[in-house]
Design a binder for these strands. Structure first.
Lengths: 207, 207
DNA sequence: GTATGTGAACTATTTCACAGCT
DNA sequence: AGCTGTGAAATAGTTCACATAC
């Protein structure tokens, strides 16, 4: 079994989104070419990505939407749910907690922590904000497996270490710093400023 | 002049962040190895990235932090400012507008638009929300060059088309859909659900 | 006939390694 | 002696193209 590129995983979610829509519309089968068309990807890319995980298609006919949907959900862990804690309940942290887009994806935001004692005890949506000192207890009691870091850059590494010490092995980091983490911990960086700045580079350097 | 990889641009912003910090701390020079250490990148990567844009280092000594800072700012268009409009003022749109991280980066959020007439006229931070019908006028009057799409998936393509018709060539897309755009338009996708879901794949598949 | 699955070819990106500058 | 800048080697990822299956 060869290594699956990171991009493949990301694209599988795109395929799943599209396939789910197709299944909902009662479209029974789809070819890699059509699926690629709808997702702005090549037919070869679609087949190669799926090929990492098995043989889901039928030669001459394409893919059965319902079968592929189920297969992808299985592969991507959609049959499970994960408990998420957000650390740092500022503008961004609050927005993430309230953002409805996550709820349908098996990701449950069940804890929010902040260092600011003025915020502790207040509610964001359904969740009561807890003190960051409670982190170890919260992580173990609420069986948190994913931590979202939404604190300023200066505090990010420390928060990451607290989360890891408490046993969290998956981090989504919104702080604009490179976190130092051991091999077994998976970090995804989302640097919104950098995304925007990349566009400003494009503007500054076009033609 | 050869093509510069996308990743290089993104990393230049990381180097700039670090170099700015170093300059602030009155550290005068730094080697590619040290800079790599601080950013979790290899020394070769640092040199190769910088090498796309010129010769900034001194053999045997490394890079002068102030010189490199200025050079990077120039390359990355930090000497210019760009006007940004946010379309869709929900949780996410509001958070982006209020998020202070952007202000210092030459990116000015100066317009917010929404289709919901109940929101029109209300304020988010300093900005008054305008109707999406006003988009062409707003883009030209306020010289908008970057559009942020923070509407639900169903409306994203339409919003993109309105922005492009008004002359906007840079889009930051938060909607979970693949936008169809012509060659001359630059789109950056930020799919927060997908980032989180990728972590759930990791959890579901780790040993 | 049509569309998959997959090695082989190609392209992009990263790492190596060292000649050459200070 | 120390560290850059950069071709060359290695690795990763995408596209091609076709034998094979239905």
């Amino acid at each position: 079994m060869k290594k699956v590129p990171e991009g493949t995983i990301s694209r599988l979610f795109i395929y799943l989104r599209e396939i789910t829509e197709l299944a909902r519309m009662n479209i029974r089968t789809i070819s890699s070419a059509e699926l690629g068309e709808r997702t702005n990807l090549s037919d070869a890319q679609v087949r190669k990505d799926l090929g990492y995980f098995g043989h889901f298609g039928v030669s001459g006919a394409g893919y059965d939407t319902n079968e592929l949907k189920q297969a992808l959900e299985k592969i991507l862990g959609k049959d499970k749910t994960w408990n998420v804690a957000v650390v740092g309940v500022g503008q961004l942290g609050s927005a993430l907690i309230s953002y409805s887009g996550f709820k349908k994806h098996g990701l449950q935001f069940i804890a929010a922590l902040d260092a600011d004692t003025k915020k502790v005890g207040k509610k964001v949506g359904e969740i009561t904000i807890e003190s960051i000192g409670e982190l170890p207890k919260v992580v173990s009691n609420k069986k948190i497996t994913i931590g979202i870091i939404a604190v300023p850059a200066e505090g990010a590494q420390e928060v990451a270490e607290k989360l890891m010490a408490a046993g969290v092995e998956c981090l989504l980091n919104f702080a604009p710093v490179s976190l130092n983490v051991p091999e077994n911990v998976k970090v995804k960086d989302v640097d919104l400023s950098r995304e925007l700045e990349t566009l400003s580079y494009f503007l500054a350097n076009k033609k």
